[in-house]
C-alpha cells in the first residue's frame, strides 16, 4: 500500500480506539493492547506513540523528539513509522 509512504506532517495522529497504549513495568516497554493480544513496542516506537494524543501534529512530535533526544533529522523516520502504524490500524488521523 502507498499509504505508508505519505503520512502527512500536518496530521494529528492519535491512538486508535481499537488499541490501548500503556507502559508495562514488568516488560520495561510500552505495549499496545487489543482483544486477546498485545504488541510489545521497541523504544523508538514507544516514544513516538506515547506522543500521538491527537493534540500534536507530526511536526510537533518530531520537534519534541528531537529536543528530548538532542538530535535532528527525525522527520522521515517518524513519517515512515506513522505510515506503518496507520496501516496496522494502531493510529488514526
Amino acid at each position: 500500500m502507498t499509504e505508508a509512504a505519505v503520512f502527512s506532517p500536518d496530521a494529528y495522529p492519535r491512538i486508535s480506539r481499537k488499541f490501548r497504549l500503556q507502559w508495562e513495568d514488568a516488560q520495561q516497554a510500552w505495549v499496545l493492547l487489543y482483544p486477546e493480544g498485545m504488541v510489545k513496542l521497541n523504544q523508538s516506537a514507544g516514544e513516538i506513540l506515547q506522543r500521538c494524543d491527537g493534540t500534536r501534529s507530526t511536526l510537533d512530535i518530531v520537534a519534541d523528539l528531537e529536543q528530548a533526544f538532542a538530535t535532528t533529522g527525525l522527520l522521515a523516520d517518524v513519517q515512515a513509522f506513522l505510515g506503518m502504524a496507520r496501516q496496522q490500524h494502531w493510529i488514526e488521523g
Binding site: E24, A26, Q27, V31, L33, E36, G37, M38
Partner: peptide
C-alpha cells in the same frame, strides 16, 4: 504484580 497484562 508478576507482570500479567491480558486477563481472560
Amino acid at each position: 504484580a508478576a507482570g500479567s497484562v491480558q486477563c481472560g
